[in-house]
Design a protein around this nucleic acid. Structure first.
Lengths: 225, 225
DNA sequence: CCTGCCCCTGAACGGTTTCTGAATATAATT
DNA sequence: AATTATATTCAGAAACCGTTCAGGGGCAGG
């Protein structure tokens, strides 16, 4: 983890740098708003600690610039005591947290951990198979970046197959996973859905394994020959 | 957005509930740690405000239990002044932010907005979807710069959908997040609200995904065809 | 304290999409 | 070529959704 500290009080920044290094972070220091802005813009930090009272450019402006440029790293701002209106301004500029000076270093560390933990909570909900992408969170599928319109059962089918891509999946298994309990399956609904799905995402993507079921092909891991 | 407040001071919790309702949130109150723990475990909150000094079970324990159970909603803890060691314990138990009593309600709101915003992956209080803008801070919406008159529930609906733009949101999820506890969802109020909202912001902005729910379109990221 | 207004709720109805199941056509296997 | 498995097509049925409306409740202004 790499952290940027933008702070003009040299004593404080040195102290913080030392404490953070001990805790296992890589730390950069900027002594004024200009330098801070430049570093934040050009280096890939995991988090930033930003003093609001800075020479050259003030902290809120630096933060606004970063956010306007699409920087998303978590930012913890440091403010003087009893400046709660300033804190609110900082939040509205896109800060994720703040701390009032003076503070205990231990508390700053705890807050930083909380921010990093939170930022890491990203789990991708999408599955890609060549130029086919299945987005389970949005309940959509894309071919070549183009959204495909699928009905709810079509999507369920695709989603399940995508989660088990490359494997042969029996009709029974499909039925069990895309329908709830009571479904009277002496009908050919699965074949019908596979047909409709093929029409929408391309026939060749779903392979029929005669006597066993279907297989959704994953171009990444095909050793076809 | 639906919020849980766990606070034993009845005056304070009543005051907060009223302020939050005015700001367009659905709010539940728990008066002690036990009730708070139960509600947080069983209801899908978007955020929780948790007092650390509570009857029956203390706040830190409640939080630990939630996190151990895999609850990920953002939690803002309230502490008495100068109890910073308690705050650190709260952070390590998985809190996302804290506020020291006494505080300005306005500041609590700003912090809550920041938490919700962060949970939604945004950095500002306003969300734009083409020429539709949702301002969560002012609880207003604009189309083409013109303010739209929305009732409180219409706004809640829009706000929640905007926070999850591009994603399909089920009716159940909508009901759970725009109403507080006691609501008998054997009705079609959601459809009614969606209808009214469409009439105000334009029908085409909310896509119906049959069998799944609704999706608020984000023109920035549509490659539909 | 009362009145009027606005908003929310819940139900009914009608139109539309989607699902199902069967019939028919095509492909694979022996 | 016969047999079996899978595809395709289609129509009726079911599920789903949009709309409308009346009743009721809360809030603000009188």
């Amino acid at each position: 983890m790499r952290v940027l500290i933008v702070e003009d009080d040299a004593d404080l920044s040195r102290q913080l740098k030392s404490a953070f290094k001990d805790a296992g972070y890589a730390v950069d220091i900027a002594n004024d708003g200009e330098e801070g802005h430049f570093l934040g813009d050009t280096e890939p930090y995991d988090a930033v600690i930003l003093d609001l009272g800075l020479p050259l450019i003030d902290g809120v402006s630096v933060l606004q610039k970063w956010r306007a440029d699409g920087k998303t790293f978590p930012v913890l701002i440091l403010t003087a005591r009893d400046q709660w209106s300033e804190k609110v301004a900082g939040f509205d500029a896109g800060a994720d947290d703040y701390l009032t000076k003076p503070f205990h270093v231990e508390e700053l560390m705890a807050r930083l951990r909380a921010l990093l933990r939170r930022a890491a909570g990203h789990t991708t909900d999408t599955i890609e198979l060549g130029d086919l992408m299945v987005d389970n969170r949005a309940a959509r599928a894309f071919v070549d970046g183009m959204a495909i319109k699928l009905t709810s059962h079509e999507f369920r089918l695709l989603s399940y197959m995508a989660a088990h891509k490359g494997r042969v999946i029996s009709r029974t298994e499909l039925v069990e996973h895309i329908y709830d309990q009571d479904f009277d399956r002496d009908s050919n609904t699965i074949e019908v859905f596979v047909g409709r799905l093929r029409k929408k995402i391309g026939t060749e993507r779903i392979e029929t394994v005669r006597g066993l079921g279907y297989r959704l092909l994953d171009p990444e891991s095909e050793n076809t020959d």
